[in-house]
Design a protein around this nucleic acid. Structure first.
Lengths: 145, 145
DNA sequence: GTTTTTGCAAATGATTTGCATGGAT
DNA sequence: ATCCATGCAAATCATTTGCAAAAAC
C-alpha cells in the first residue's frame, strides 16, 4: 500500500467510525495537510487543493478543517495574524509568533507544564492540553530592525 | 495624589516621553483598563468609556489600545473567540481558554519556560516573552457536557 | 432512494482606512 | 499656529450561513 493509500485509508476509517461520508474533497485536503507538515490558512489549503480538485470552494475547506479538528487530526492555532492557522502536527510542540510579520515557527522542547495544568484544574478548568506561545521577532524581522 | 491622579500621571509621563498628546480619551480608557484588571474587547472598552465620555468612537478605541500596546501597558490576546482581547495585566501569567464558550481565565503559576525560550533562540527567533496557553473546558461548560 | 456534502451567493462581524474637523501643544 | 487625534462613514477581510444541486451511502 502506497503512502497516499495509507493516508486515505486512515481518514476513511475515522470517517466511517462516525458514519460520515468519504468524499474526494476530504481525501484531497487530508493528503495536502499531511504532505506539508506545517501551519496553513484556509486560503492556502484551497489554493493547493484546487490544483487537484478544481472548483472546490472555501466554505467546504472550512467545513472540512472543522471536521478534521473534531477527528483530532488538525488543530486550530490563533496566531493573531488575521487568518486562523490550521496545524496538522498533532504531536505536542510550541509556537513562536513574530510580532512584526506574524510568521509562526514550531518550537520543540520538553517543557514541564504539569504545574500550569494543575493550576488550571485548581481554578475549575478541565484542561485538554497546554502549549507555550513565544512572542518576539523572527530571524528576518530581527535582522531588519 | 489620588489613585486616579496617579494613574493619569503615569500615562501622561509615558505619552510625553514619546512626544504624544494627552487626550481625555486616552486618560479615560487607561483608567477604565486599570480599574478592571481583566481581559476586555474593544467593544467592552467603548461601552464603559461611553459612560464617561459619550461620543467616543470605536476607531479611537482601537487606535488607543494599539498605542497602549506599544507603550507596554496592554497586551493583545488572541483567544480565538471572534474578537481580540486586550489584557491590562502585564505581569507574567498564563491563560486557559474554553474550547466551547471561548471564555479566558488567568492562570498564575511559576512555570519554567527558559528551555522553550532557549529553543526559540536556537531556531533564530528573538523572544520577548513566553506564556502557556491551556486548552480545555471552563467549569461551566464542563458541567454542561 | 435517502441523507449528507458541496458550491454558490450573500450575510456577518471585527478591525482598518480616508478624510475633514476639533483639540493639544 | 501647527500638527496630532478624533469621529464619521465606508472599505476590507476572514469566516459563516441558507439553500438548491450533486454525490455518497
Amino acid at each position: 500500500m502506497s503512502a497516499v493509500e495509507s493516508i486515505d485509508a486512515e481518514l476513511t476509517e475515522l470517517l466511517r467510525a462516525r458514519g460520515q461520508r468519504v468524499t474526494s474533497q476530504r481525501l484531497v485536503i487530508n493528503r495536502m495537510l499531511r504532505s506539508r507538515d506545517q501551519h496553513v490558512t484556509a486560503e492556502e489549503v484551497l489554493g493547493a487543493v484546487t490544483q487537484t480538485l478544481p472548483g472546490t470552494s472555501l466554505p467546504t475547506v472550512y467545513a472540512t478543517l472543522e471536521l478534521f479538528e473534531q477527528l483530532g487530526i488538525v488543530r486550530r492555532l490563533n496566531s493573531g495574524g488575521g487568518a486562523v492557522l490550521f496545524d496538522s502536527r498533532t504531536v505536542d510542540h510550541h509556537h513562536a509568533i513574530c510580532r512584526d510579520c506574524g510568521a509562526v515557527q514550531d518550537i520543540d522542547d520538553p517543557a514541564e507544564l504539569s504545574g500550569v495544568l494543575q493550576a488550571a484544574r485548581d481554578a475549575g478548568f478541565a484542561p485538554d492540553r497546554a502549549a507555550v506561545v513565544v512572542d518576539g521577532l523572527c530571524a528576518a524581522c530581527a535582522a531588519a530592525s
